Computed example of a mutant assay.
Amino acid sequence: MAQVNEHPGEQAAQDSIKLIGVRESALSVDEVFQAVGDDAAGGVALFVGTVRNHDGGADVDALGYSCHPSAEAEMRRIAEKVVAEYPVRALAAVHRVGDLRVGDLAVVVGVACPHRAEAFDACRKLIDDLKHEVPIWKHQKFSDGTDEWVGA
């Protein structure tokens, strides 16, 4: 008969959503990492999305993010789904809006779980669902003077 580990650290934490935000100010990896700190977590996975200098074969000079007023609430809804599916000890997600330059941080998410595999899986689920479901739109400005809306 297999033993069931009843240690609270092996389970999801209550109130595990520590930070959710949509901001016009610069994002901080340290802030997200600190937000997901948990002594019972053996694995912390972070994803940092940055503005790259190209897309679809074209050089990108800059971009702007805008969002629907419901964006933060949608981020929280997705975070709640991830917390329900994985043994999350702590979760944080912040997304930038406004004008960004190449190299700027656009999104930072972090998840802490009892074990690394769970942390990786939960973090991937979080960022993938945020990218697909949260109403945040990207306006890319290319070096040739053209532009493109993504996700609109």
Rank of each mutant, 00 (worst) to 15 (best):
E10G: 15
A12M: 05
G57V: 03
L27K: 09
V83F: 06
D129K: 00
I17A: 01
D128I: 12
V108L: 09
V111Q: 13
Q3T: 13
A90M: 01
V94L: 08
R23H: 07
T146S: 13
H95Q: 04
D15H: 06
R52C: 08
K138T: 01
Y65W: 02
G57M: 07
G103C: 00
L130V: 15
F47D: 08
E31V: 13
P87I: 11
G103S: 03
A45M: 08
E24V: 13
K141R: 14
S28Q: 08
D129L: 00
V82D: 01
A41V: 11
V88I: 04
V109H: 11
G43F: 02
F33R: 14
H7Y: 09
L91W: 09
V82M: 07
R116K: 04
D144P: 03
D15E: 09
E72G: 10
D15F: 00
A84M: 07
A106L: 12
M1H: 09
N5S: 05
A26V: 09
I136L: 10
E118A: 13
D99G: 14
D55T: 11
N53I: 05
P8F: 06
D121M: 14
A92Q: 00
V102Y: 01
A41H: 14
G9D: 14
G49M: 14
K141A: 10
T50H: 12
A92S: 01
F120H: 04
A112G: 11
H95A: 04
D128H: 06
V32S: 07
H68E: 11
G43C: 03
G43H: 01
V109M: 11
V29E: 11
N5G: 05
P8G: 00
V94Y: 09
A58R: 15
V109N: 11
V51M: 05
E31T: 04
D147E: 15
D39N: 13
L105A: 10
A71Q: 14
A92K: 07
S143I: 10
L105F: 04
T146Y: 07
E10I: 12
L91A: 02
G57T: 01
D128K: 01
E6A: 13
A90S: 04
A13Y: 03
I20D: 00
F120A: 06
L126A: 08
C113M: 03
R76I: 15
E133T: 01
L105C: 08
H68R: 03
R23I: 10
L27C: 00
D129T: 10
S70V: 05
L46H: 14
G43L: 06
C67M: 05
R116Y: 07
L91F: 09
V36S: 08
V109F: 11
N53A: 12
H68Y: 05
V111G: 02
R89A: 05
A58P: 06
R96W: 04
D30G: 05
V4H: 11
C113T: 15
L91K: 11
C67Q: 06
I78D: 11
G57N: 08
A90W: 00
Q140C: 03
I20Q: 02
R124P: 06
